[in-house]
Design a protein around this nucleic acid. Structure first.
Ligand SMILES: [Zn+2]
Ligand SMILES: [Zn+2]
Ligand SMILES: [Zn+2]
Ligand SMILES: [Zn+2]
Lengths: 139, 139
DNA sequence: CTTTGACCCTGTATCTACTACAGAGCTTAG
DNA sequence: CTAAGCTCTGTAGTAGATACAGGGTCAAAG
């Protein structure tokens, strides 16, 4: 299978596939006589593995570890650790984003859409915060 | 004020301050005879402005725009647009992360901590998904 | 037979927002 | 005088792609 076909089939960008190869995340595909890469079924499985992990927010380095576990390890503790770590990370991110949302909403609501910058709560709050004064977003 | 003092006072890393200067986000600080930067009160306000915006998740480019609005514009519509855009983006991110959380939880719960990789739901699901089969996280 | 268009190749640059040096000079305390 | 602790500049690295430039190859159409 040529890379364009693989790309379309899996929905992974051509350059991304090349990137994964450069990172040694997949075994090097065979080459045809003309030098073109020919992706094997195994290559496709490897690519899907990465794609699936990435869709779960697992980092490239962690994908590497998970691959090794599949191939070498008889023990799943490290895999479990990766999932738990990412779970914690995501909980934290959600919390942070929720706080951010509250702040941005306050700002948003302080703009009365009159159009005049000097009456705008957003513009005002940003200027005030820069002076060390109060702002609607951090109160 | 020398950069170390500024850094400590505002809680912005020294290198980050230099980075903001290189990006022309602050006006160039005066130099002492020995070439050392001397940060003015205005510099501090500029830095706080950036810090405050960044804490709201506003990008460097958007900070630039917001700065221009403060200085030039009589109209707040662009500022409002930036806030709204970020709000939408954050809502989307929260949604995505919540979905991710569900998926990772499913995975996490499928690991029975026996320690054996071949009994581990995580290891299994990752392998199965790579083969195009079902996984606990995407069901 | 040639040309056109769609592929493929490699290598390198770009993106965001920092962060981390290396190698040098200045300043101040002991 | 020396050593610690600042400061300076320039450059490289981070994650995970993404986007070329400049070239080769291949199949079909004219
Ligand atoms: Zn407004
Ligand atoms: Zn605020
Ligand atoms: Zn397990
Ligand atoms: Zn899954």
């Amino acid at each position: 299978m040529l890379r364009n076909e693989v790309s379309k089939k899996l929905g992974i960008d051509i350059e991304t596939i090349r990137f994964y190869e450069k990172e040694n995340l997949i075994s090097k595909p065979e080459r045809l006589e003309n030098g073109y890469r020919s992706y094997s079924k195994e290559n496709l499985v490897e690519l899907k593995f990465i794609q699936h992990c990435r869709s779960l927010g697992v980092s490239i380095e962690e994908v590497r570890t998970l691959k090794d576990i599949q191939n070498l390890s008889t023990d799943c503790s490290q895999a479990n650790l990766i999932i738990e770590k990412n779970l914690d990370l995501i909980e934290q991110k959600i919390e942070d984003l929720k706080n951010l949302r509250v702040q941005l909403k306050s700002l948003s609501e302080s703009c009365f859409k009159t159009g005049a910058a000097k009456d705008c709560g957003i513009v005002k709050s940003l200027a005030q915060a820069a002076q060390g004064e109060d702002c609607v977003c951090h109160s």
